[in-house]
C-alpha cells in the first residue's frame, strides 16, 4: 500500500528516529512504511494519522490490485 508518510514527516521537520519515538515503534518500521514494504496494523495507521492530524485515507492510499 502506498502512503504519504515520508512527505508528511519531512513537512513536519521530523527525522525517522523522532517519528519512531513519537509512535513508539522502531526506526526500521518507519523506513519500511515509507518504502511501502510494510503495511501497518489499523492501530498504528490510526496513530500515524493522528500525529499528522489527518484521516487514515489522507495518509495511506488504497489501490485495487
Amino acid at each position: 500500500m502506498k502512503n504519504r508518510l515520508e512527505e508528511l514527516r519531512k513537512a513536519k521537520g521530523l527525522r525517522q528516529e523522532e517519528l519512531a519515538d513519537i509512535l513508539e515503534v522502531s526506526r526500521q518500521t518507519i523506513g519500511s512504511l515509507e518504502n511501502g514494504r510494510y503495511n501497518p496494523s489499523i492501530t498504528l495507521a490510526f496513530k500515524i494519522a493522528k500525529v499528522f492530524n489527518l484521516s487514515i485515507e489522507e495518509v495511506f492510499i488504497y489501490e485495487e490490485e
Binding site: V25, T29, L44
Partner: peptide, 11 residues
C-alpha cells in the same frame, strides 16, 4: 521496550 513491542518486529 519499543523494540520488543514493535509490531513489525513481532510480525
Amino acid at each position: 521496550r519499543i523494540e520488543a513491542g514493535d509490531e513489525r518486529n513481532q510480525s
